[in-house]
């Protein structure tokens, strides 16, 4: 199965695979620049959390603890690193991190890392849509 089969907005032109597949880390870890653990509430998570809290608020709190604060959009802003948090049915589903050139990088579950030109490229399907942007000073 190709990645474009899993993501309705992903095309051959708007993304590039940048790593092999691995179950070692997930998108939340990758957004936090960690490649050693699968980040999961109540199991391995930067803030105290119930194992049952998989809501969007919990992932916002997690990234607040890492120095991020909520912001309005994903436009490239000098001196800041931004995140795009996706959600569906009140659960967080994905986090993407913005690169210095304005593109985004995402770890797709157990699959590969990709670079994608817009956050819309990974929206839809099981990932839902971007529900919150965050930023922190570089």
């Amino acid at each position: 199965m190709n990645l474009t089969d899993l993501f309705p907005n992903l095309t051959g032109e708007n993304h590039e695979i940048t790593s092999p597949r691995t179950v070692r880390y997930n998108c939340i870890a990758w957004a936090a620049c960690n490649t050693e653990r699968w980040w999961q509430p109540g199991v391995f998570w930067p803030v105290d959390s119930s194992r049952n809290d998989h809501g969007i608020g919990n992932v916002v709190e997690a990234f607040r603890s890492l120095g991020y604060e909520e912001c309005d959009d994903g436009a490239l802003e000098g001196g800041f690193e931004k995140l795009a948090l996706c959600g569906s049915a009140m659960m967080y589903t994905h986090a993407a991190r913005q690169l210095p050139d304005g593109k985004w990088t995402s770890k797709l579950g157990q699959l590969q890392d990709i670079t994608h030109t817009t956050t819309e490229a990974i929206e839809g399907g099981d990932y839902g849509e971007v529900v919150q942007y965050m930023k922190r000073l570089l």
């Binding site: 939340i28 659960m91 589903t93 797709l108 157990q110």
Partner: peptide, 13 residues
């Protein structure tokens, strides 16, 4: 497995 390889939220998986 076919439905969840691309997911990161363990609850969703």
């Amino acid at each position: 497995k076919s439905k969840t390889r691309h997911l990161s939220n363990t609850a969703q998986i």
